[in-house]
Design a protein around this nucleic acid. Structure first.
Lengths: 184, 184
DNA sequence: CGTCTATTTGAATGTACTCAAAAGCGGTGG
DNA sequence: CCACCGCTTTTGAGTACATTCAAATAGACG
């Protein structure tokens, strides 16, 4: 729960309330938490393990949009916030345990403790700005630089995540990433 | 002010209050509203004209991240929300008029009318999800498809914005965009 | 009008991809 | 505990997409 303390302060009663609405879930590697096309009923907070958010294109290829290791949130925010069919899917890259926050519980939470509007506003702002930077990086830099940057920024992920998933995240083929790695 | 009504409802007194804190500004084409490196003191709502948000890389090249025509917001959200030096710059592509909302005024607004936490949370969520989609599109599609998609999605921008700016937004060179256009 | 910038066109180059085959690695069952 | 199967990674050759450089043309604006 220390995570919430990053942007807002909660008294003990509020902390209890939040804990009461979170569902804890232990899942095995490759478990799918959200299937593209379904309505996303939960946002996930990763306590242990790692999730990935990805899109499956018309040719069946998967494109990873983000990885969520410990202490990160994962969701198809458009699907969740609008309760519409999801464009993305979410699955576990490792055995994981996560806290699930349902749409209804969150909408109630916003009413009960409006501070959470602030919390999720700030959380979303940070995510927004991360994607802005990543877009710019993708528009302006060749694959090799993007990969070097990924290594520097997420050294722990580089160890844990297979090449094909990193390649997909970077928008290149596993074959090409293998080449880049050779010329370290 | 109809823009706020999209996500929250305001009574007349609240509407007046909001209008009182917005500064109206008329600017000429190419006016720079935010310079990379400066702290962004305002977010901008475009009433007429069009702004662009862009990054200037180490070689001096500019990379457009977004265009904001009428009824869109523009800001380097990381700089604004953290009051840190900006990574991006903002300038006007056309003679424009904008409403400026200062950091201090907005923080006060959040306290005076907490509904605005909700408004900007939703606004940010929508932007967040737009960038997610755009990232995925960039990772998975070749330049031509991205361009065709841009044409379909923003036909009005295609008319108003010069090729070099569209090319920069798409992450390709103006020369290559010219080629793509020929083979329509 | 004249100047400056943007766009077009063409040729040569480089970056990243596809296809194919071999090697490596991880999990599972005998 | 080893052997096998399937999936991932490596390697190489050939190709396609997108860039750079250069020069000519077109458009915008004072």
């Amino acid at each position: 729960m220390a995570n919430f303390a990053m942007h807002i302060t909660l008294d003990p009663a509020e902390t209890d309330y939040v804990q009461s609405i979170l569902q804890h879930k232990v899942i095995k590697k490759n478990t799918v938490l959200l299937n593209s096309g379904d309505v996303s009923r939960y946002v996930y907070f990763v306590n242990r393990g790692c999730l990935r958010l990805y899109h499956t294109d018309s040719t069946g290829l998967e494109h990873n949009l983000s990885f969520s290791p410990e202490n990160w949130w994962s969701s198809d925010i458009a699907s969740f916030s609008g309760q519409r069919p999801a464009f993305y899917s979410i699955s576990a890259l490792e055995d994981s345990d996560v806290f699930c926050l349902s749409y209804d519980a969150l909408e109630t939470l916003y009413i009960q403790i409006p501070k959470f509007e602030r919390f999720f506003r700030i959380l979303t702002q940070n995510g927004f700005s991360m994607y802005q930077r990543r877009m710019t990086s993708n528009l302006s830099k060749p694959a090799e630089e993007r990969y070097r940057h990924f290594q520097k920024k997420y050294p722990y992920l580089e160890q844990r995540i297979t090449q094909k998933h990193i390649a997909s995240y970077l928008g290149i083929t596993p074959v090409f990433l293998s080449m880049l790695r050779r010329r370290t």
